[in-house]
Design a protein around this nucleic acid. Sequence first.
DNA 1: CCTGGCACTCTTCGCACGCGAGTGCCAGAC
DNA 2: GTCTGGCACTCGCGTGCGAAGAGTGCCAGG
Lengths: 338, 338
Amino acid sequence: MLSERRLQVLRAIVQDYVGTEEPVGSKALTERHKLGVSPATVRNDMAALEEEGYIAQPHTSAGRIPTDKGYRLFVDKLAGVKPMSPPERRAIQNFLEGAVDLDDVVARTVRLLAQLTRQVAVVQYPSLTRSTVRHVELLSLAPARLMLVLITDTGRVEQRMVDCPAPFGETSLADLRARLNSRVAGRRFTDVPSLVEDLPEAFEAEDRGTVSTVLSTLLETLVEENEERLMIGGTANLTRFGHDFPLTIRPVLEALEEQVVLLKLLGEAKDPGVTVRIGHENAHEGLNSTSVVSVGYGSGGEAVAKLGVVGPTRMDYPGTMGAVRAVARYVGQILAES
Amino acid sequence: MLSERRLQVLRAIVQDYVGTEEPVGSKALTERHKLGVSPATVRNDMAALEEEGYIAQPHTSAGRIPTDKGYRLFVDKLAGVKPMSPPERRAIQNFLEGAVDLDDVVARTVRLLAQLTRQVAVVQYPSLTRSTVRHVELLSLAPARLMLVLITDTGRVEQRMVDCPAPFGETSLADLRARLNSRVAGRRFTDVPSLVEDLPEAFEAEDRGTVSTVLSTLLETLVEENEERLMIGGTANLTRFGHDFPLTIRPVLEALEEQVVLLKLLGEAKDPGVTVRIGHENAHEGLNSTSVVSVGYGSGGEAVAKLGVVGPTRMDYPGTMGAVRAVARYVGQILAES
DNA sequence: CCTGGCACTCTTCGCACGCGAGTGCCAGAC
DNA sequence: GTCTGGCACTCGCGTGCGAAGAGTGCCAGG
């Protein structure tokens, strides 16, 4: 077990390294932090910390830098979440309130996060599966061709073409539309399947095929989680990554383009609060030198999607976590209002 | 006026520089290209070309590199568009044909362009203004609240909330829906305003306010060009930019995030064929060291949107132009089919 | 008008050197 | 026991110099 002072030393190392981006030595540490002990003592502590794997030296005879394990300890035990200042909160709220539709909310959120954290921001569109149905619309485009439009409580709209096995009259269409909406409007997506399964029985034999087709298309749309979209911003902040630039940045850019990877990344974070994944804790190889700070957000009490930032492991964790948490909170509010 | 041989020399310089990424000298030129003259002669020609501003030397005694003006001459006079090979064409077609909806078409196009050109790809979503209306749908969400859904021939869907000045009955709603569609379905966006202006007159006085509101929302949606979206991909290719990395790449990343800038950039290219904007020809400062190759594409004969790539001025123009042109052509086909 | 030769300019690279930051360890003080 | 000050050692990094190489400009001759 590490003594209290050694933890202080680790904290000081993390803070200094994050600030200066340079390996930090024992002397500099005692000068910048009031540890009340001499450099020699700190050296001993550092040796112990290195032994335990919390810090490392990039080259022999250089200062120490924190390892992933060191950052982990820092995040878990040594640092809290730094709350946003009231003016910042107000700025966030004002900026988000100007949004006119869902796309705009997401776009603004991305910009905001990128600006606040000076890192790459990732915002997932509110997920379909956990939200509720506001309305289902059916349009007849051709005698045997329908368009199914699904509108969610978060303002998202999904549309699908439906090719009917047989022509479908306007009357039947209106009937189906009415029955469908009376059953599913306001219900959660997960409840929909059981609510509509007996619907074909209410129709004439000739229309049942079409009704079934429409229903299965609707259910497909509901479960189609891979359709989840996300928006990315602040990639220019990648240039602040470090000196050994091209090698570091390339895999990150590649990973960011793989939306699947990002979605998985966000999805893995199960914690209800702010989740931090540091360096090699990220499954994707290209992100091994980055940390991901993410959190769920939602219009009600429940989270319907995630947002977060991707940055170098050498980042200001308390500040970043505070910003991510605050933005998530306000986005949730905005979504609930609209 | 430049003699024929001097143009050949310029062409050789551009080709070599694009290939090697290094300033090219007179000796290397005569070795790699069969110019039939000695290095000394080439040196004289180079001096003349430099005098005219087509090439420059980065340092006093180093080889020459083309200037923006040099590339311009190369593109205009010295190089054609390199057509894609049949296998490449087939690959493009196959890849695009797998798309399931508009989003997917655009996403695939971006990936494809980025891969083919190894540069950053930008694809604009088919513009609303030039396409036609497939269907307009009105949904009643609350007594005095409607949702307007507009479906275009390119498969795009736009929705807007409408707050009515007075409650609007189901019967009136159905009436409005029917009248609206019979007038505008299949018509071009630009024709819609004149087609609906007298519509309120057909309704009872109490409903006219709502009808007008719906119509103006519809018209707003139609003209809202700034809502034009685009998709970007292949940013990882920015790492191939050059050695003087961080300085070059940062403004480019920033410019790419400003969708407005990109839209303006694409919009400026009026040429019906492939347009090339080289270095400082780009209005945006951050893109002064890049070239933009763009072209319009569309489902019918007419272009409804643009696509293109952004890369270093030192790029393979004939190949890039060929790829951009081919992709645009096939995307147009796919859109026409669906 | 083209060519070969020649002198000149600069950049780049390798190498040796010294400086400074940082470390590890040890003996002594509290 | 724990902390401290001192000391010798290791390296990375910046600097300066010299040689090499590439490329140029110019000139005289074919």
